[in-house]
Amino acid sequence: MNSIIFSAGARILVALLLVFSVFMLLRGHNLPGGGFIGGLIGAVGFIVYALACGTAEAKAALRVSPEAIAMVGLGIALSAGLAAAPFGEALFTGIWIWVGGDSYATAALKPNTVLVFDVGVYLVVLGSIVSLACAFEEEV
């Protein structure tokens, strides 16, 4: 697509979409949102970029191939699920560690596997959607 308006506008739009996707990912922890929708929004960002500047540019902007992102994401999500094993819990049970307190309300820091899982999902969705879109864009 050779429209100057589009490719100029795309740069701003892409930046906004990517920031918004990370916002959605983090917001999903307690409110509607999460890794899946965040990943979709992020993917839309890269697809807009690919439409404006070509898939080669978009892939260069990703730096890593989208398939690799998806697979690493799958690995992260899986390890978050498998982390329940040493604790003797069922697969994908959320494991929480309270720092500076002893419950959800009082703890200052709450590192947990749920967020790790969400990040994994974010990467899976981002990677697989971008790779699908690029496959069509390149061949057709």
Binding site: E67, A68, M71, L74, G75, L78, A90
Partner: peptide, 22 residues
């Protein structure tokens, strides 16, 4: 019991990640 049901799904996923990296 829960792992018995989860493993047939989890094993192919873990394998997928490893073989992609290799």
């Amino acid at each position: 019991m829960s792992w018995l049901l989860a493993l047939p799904i989890a094993i192919p996923f873990v394998t997928a990640v490893i073989v992609y990296l290799l």
